[in-house]
């Protein structure tokens, strides 16, 4: 981080103290959210999500694969995330960074825990199952990749075609059924800066926050995944309050998901 960022950050901290966010939002307010599905027709499923200036594309491919030895009759889910160098001047070229791996794993846990994917329906025959590959492509970074990535991955899953396997061949085109899914999962991410807790931190807020918490829940308000990040701490009261906010705000996220059409 250069000194320019340090000077900018000092200002953000200073006004947060007075209860003001640099972009004028309330502490528990999302930026505007936009989503569309079917962006990449070659992929079996795809969705693009914008939260403010953060832009994420999720693409899904489904291939014939071998099952995991411990789950011989279930299909596989493989979630990866790439922080593309075109998304930020701070992203480098190279193998996935720890941040990209954490992002993919948190999205993966939410989807798995909520049983969005019916993995048993992905069984084809002995030693043959479908693998569902979700690739999360970060196209422009401005904070809160967790919520944007979960939203785009779930949006894509809900509108994915299920290829057919006939005579040892994968059929990806023509009339195909939808991939079987159950319910929805969304996540809400909070950042803590000098004791102030903010929903949906943007890029500059993330660069100075001490603590981060992501809470994923389903439509019945069961908490499905949580991930605390960074060096700071939360009190139990703070976490309880963030859970309440998550239950409330996730309604808006689910209505984004249910309004999507291919």
């Amino acid at each position: 981080m250069g000194y320019i960022d340090i000077v900018k950050n000092e200002y953000i901290k200073e006004i947060l103290h007075k209860g003001i966010r640099d972009d004028g939002r309330k502490f528990m307010q999302y930026r505007s959210i936009q989503a569309s599905v079917g962006t990449i027709p070659n992929a079996e499923g795809s969705a693009e999500v914008d939260i403010g200036n953060t832009k994420v594309l999720a693409g899904i491919k489904i291939d014939v694969d071998t099952p995991m030895p411990d789950k011989p009759e279930e299909g596989n889910l493989i979630v990866s995330a790439e922080l593309l160098p075109l998304a930020s001047p701070d992203y480098d070229i190279g193998p996935p960074s720890p941040a990209a791996i954490e992002l993919a794993r948190v999205v993966d846990r939410g989807i798995r825990a909520a049983n969005i994917l019916d993995t048993q329906s992905l069984f084809i025959e002995k030693d043959k199952v479908w693998s569902v590959f979700i690739d999360i492509y970060v196209l422009n970074y401005d904070g809160n990749l967790f919520d944007a990535s979960t939203l785009s991955a779930v949006a894509a899953l809900l509108h994915t075609r299920q290829p057919k396997y006939e005579e040892e061949k994968v059929i990806r085109e023509g009339t195909l059924p939808k991939l079987k899914t159950n319910g929805m999962v969304t996540s809400c991410t909070f950042g803590k800066i000098n004791g102030n807790i903010l929903l949906d931190p943007d890029g500059s807020e993330e660069s100075i926050m001490d603590t981060r918490l992501t809470i994923a829940n389903d439509e019945n308000n069961n908490i499905k995944a949580m991930q605390k990040g960074l060096h700071g701490t939360f009190s139990i009261k703070e976490v309880e309050s963030m859970i309440d906010t998550t239950f409330e705000k996730s309604k808006d996220l689910r209505s984004v998901l249910s309004s999507l059409e291919n």
Binding site: I40, N42, A43, S46, G59, I60, K61, D63, S80, E82, P95, S131, F133, D135, Y137, V170, R172, E173
Partner: peptide, 14 residues
């Protein structure tokens, strides 16, 4: 090229 960019199987990224 993105791993989901073709109409074929999942590509290797990078």
């Amino acid at each position: 090229m993105a791993p989901f960019s073709s109409l074929e199987e999942h590509g290797r990224s990078g």
